[in-house]
């Protein structure tokens, strides 16, 4: 009964939004995304996105992107996962990078982080001169019980980061309870002790609700290549998801949205707050 009411309410909201030519209210969209009565194909046995992305802390992730120019998509995805780990006594995310790669890859930008939904004060940038130092810094940070996540940009297939090193990191991470995200580049895969291996590819976004020609919320094609979490068996086949990054976190991209027909993507919450009353007139 209650589910039906929410569905009705949502339908009404859409109708009103269509009449007023402005975006559907954010909470409406969020509810719509999670509502139980969502049309799901009967033979769809895929696990829910929320389940797939609900990863306990203290896990070593590898986030692969095919090319260096896709690196920011990898960073975005890692930050998206790491954001959920902040809380309680864990208030910091560390981003590690080799100092020489600052110009090559760019440096995380506080204003952009804020826009992305990460409090810039919580992200600390560490730039080291060598990979050995970077690995040391990573281990040191993982062992700290106030660090939520450690994200490191690692190019190529360095010797220093072999199976032993990744095993060490993985053990330290599960002992310390903060997650590690290694952003890796290329299509080669080597043996590693990472519990999860993702492959991220940026996808053409859905466009803004009233301007299909403008880039919309970031969309990623996410492949889970490896998933070894406690109590769950590894899956033989890789899983593919298409996710949008919105203010509610990762939301499955709805079919047909590529043509711009999807529900309006809510603007990030800080925007709504900053616009205040003007938001109503924004459409």
């Amino acid at each position: 009964m209650r589910g039906l009411a929410i569905a009705d309410l949502d339908a009404l909201r859409r109708k009103i939004a269509a009449l007023e030519k402005r975006p559907v209210l954010a909470e409406g969209a969020a509810v719509a995304a999670q509502r139980p009565g969502r049309p799901v194909a009967a033979n769809d046995t895929r696990p829910r996105v929320e389940e797939l992305l609900a990863i306990p802390p203290g896990v070593l992730h590898e986030v692969f992107v095919d090319e260096q120019r896709n690196g920011t998509a990898g960073l975005g995805f890692a930050l998206g996962l790491a954001r959920g780990l902040i809380g309680g006594g864990r208030q910091a995310i560390l981003y590690l990078q080799l100092a020489e790669q600052a110009q090559e890859m760019g440096v995380p930008y506080a204003l952009g982080l804020q826009r992305f939904g990460i409090d810039p004060d919580k992200l600390i940038l560490a730039r080291t001169n060598s990979l050995t130092e970077l690995l040391w810094a990573m281990e040191e940070a993982v062992a700290c019980r106030a660090v939520a996540g450690v994200i490191a940009d690692i190019h190529g297939h360095p010797k220093a980061l072999d199976f032993t090193a990744s095993r060490r990191l993985s053990l330290r991470s599960s002992a310390g309870g903060s997650s590690v995200f290694l952003i890796r580049y290329g299509r080669e895969r080597e043996a590693s002790a990472a519990k999860l291996r993702w492959r991220i590819e940026p996808e053409l976004s859905a466009g803004q609700p009233f301007d299909p020609q403008a880039p919309g919320p970031p969309r990623y094609l996410v492949e889970i290549e490896k998933r070894r979490l406690a109590g769950k068996t590894a899956r033989a086949e890789t899983m593919r998801l298409t996710l949008d990054w919105t203010e509610n976190g990762f939301v499955p991209a709805e079919d047909g949205s590529r043509t711009g027909q999807s529900y309006a993507a809510p603007a990030p919450r800080p925007v709504v707050a900053a616009l205040g009353d003007r938001y109503a007139q924004a459409g």
């Binding site: 930008y109 204003l111 952009g112 925007v271």
Partner: peptide, 9 residues
């Protein structure tokens, strides 16, 4: 906060 800014600069 309404400004559109990139994640990496």
């Amino acid at each position: 906060q309404t400004l559109v800014r990139p994640l990496r600069l």
